[in-house]
Nucleic acid binder design. Sequence first.
DNA 1: CGTGTGATTGACGCCTGTCAACGTCTGTGG
DNA 2: CCACAGACGTTGACAGGCGTCAATCACACG
Lengths: 235, 235
Amino acid sequence: MSRQQPVPCNGDCTAKTNSVFRYLTNEEQLQLSTDKGCNIYKRGNIIYREGNKINGFYCINKGIVKIFKTGTEGKEQIIRFAKQGDIIGFRSVLNGETACSTTKVVEDAILCFIPTELLYHFIKTNSDFSLKLLQLVCKELGESNSFLTDIAQKTVRERLAEVLIYLMGIFGLDNEKNIQVSLTREELANMVGTATESVIRLLSEFKSDKLIELNGRKIKILDISGLNKIGNMYK
Amino acid sequence: MSRQQPVPCNGDCTAKTNSVFRYLTNEEQLQLSTDKGCNIYKRGNIIYREGNKINGFYCINKGIVKIFKTGTEGKEQIIRFAKQGDIIGFRSVLNGETACSTTKVVEDAILCFIPTELLYHFIKTNSDFSLKLLQLVCKELGESNSFLTDIAQKTVRERLAEVLIYLMGIFGLDNEKNIQVSLTREELANMVGTATESVIRLLSEFKSDKLIELNGRKIKILDISGLNKIGNMYK
DNA sequence: CGTGTGATTGACGCCTGTCAACGTCTGTGG
DNA sequence: CCACAGACGTTGACAGGCGTCAATCACACG
């Protein structure tokens, strides 16, 4: 399925300093380095699939992945994106359930795999780490609830503007103000929760309104406050 | 604002045995009993409001509350309901943020208030409790993500059927098969994420289709598998 | 008995999903 | 080097689900 290649993870693995693992003690970090595995994944690779039993979780060292659930008609609903320093799969691991979402590589990635037992060990012995992890999950829960409310109440137009702002916040802009991520129109639609055609039409409207510029999958942000206004980001 | 009345919380407070607090040691439970406060709230009372700074969280001893976010047009989006043994407000407390949702009493309730410091203390010293709390939050996160996907992809009709099943699961049926919770049509709509009128029309469709019976706010469930089918609950 | 809140019904129209056709680009194989 | 397939992007037509507005009814309460 996923044709990842094992790579030796050197001591500079960013998981240690950028992720929730920075709250581990030196000794624990050493243990982490020893026990974890590191793999390269290419765009399109699937890390794990909804329903899979996973016996560990992943920390993203490099690259971008999307986490989505598959709806009734087989349509993807993207829950979030994850990038360097983010962890994925911990929800299922902690609850001892099968994965409730699928994770797929959007931009070539290097992922560290951390076995379940190690996570439990850290939680048992390092309360500081537990707290930070708890806060991380709570943060995600808050975002999920906000997103839920938006999808339930905002129009597609508003949500698309919001998603552009969201993507800008996560991936940033390059020096030409392009959002630094390359997504298909379909992926955008699966994030917004709408049809691909609707995204295309609205994007070209935004373009006519001088809010953005389009060049293939590159989206250049011209008018942030305009997008914010359309997305009702103030309340 | 909320006209709650302080009540002495006797030793039988269900918070101890029904909630995540059952993973505390005897000693810690004693400490909990000493430090927590207990109040009675009436239907309509607001426990805390979006944007409030709360310096503790609540465990529901009795009654039902709804947790909702307020959308752009002031419309409520109900995130979940909480009943005996559930805890509310912990997300904001743990992240040290102001509340990101409002909590309002649906059925007269008794709530225990647990100060922030005590929660932190328990997390620091009791890793078993931490883990259970973590699992609780993860469970909620999973539910929120599922709900998100449903709202994004299912029709209002499907979602209403799903919500009825959800409410049945949480509150159960009385011996006449009525869902044991009394919600206004508007509250149902705010859960489904639609207009009140749509809920009314669809409910009467369900009634014509012999799936349910209506008697004021009482909803009698006649055909569970029919509702499951409409709600696409299998996949 | 007036007032207010909630429930219901009807009319109307727009947003948005679906279907279909076509254009564009890239990689592959002959 | 060209033909072709396949994935992706775009545009147009169309229908219908669902939100909005307005009027009316039902019921409880002071």
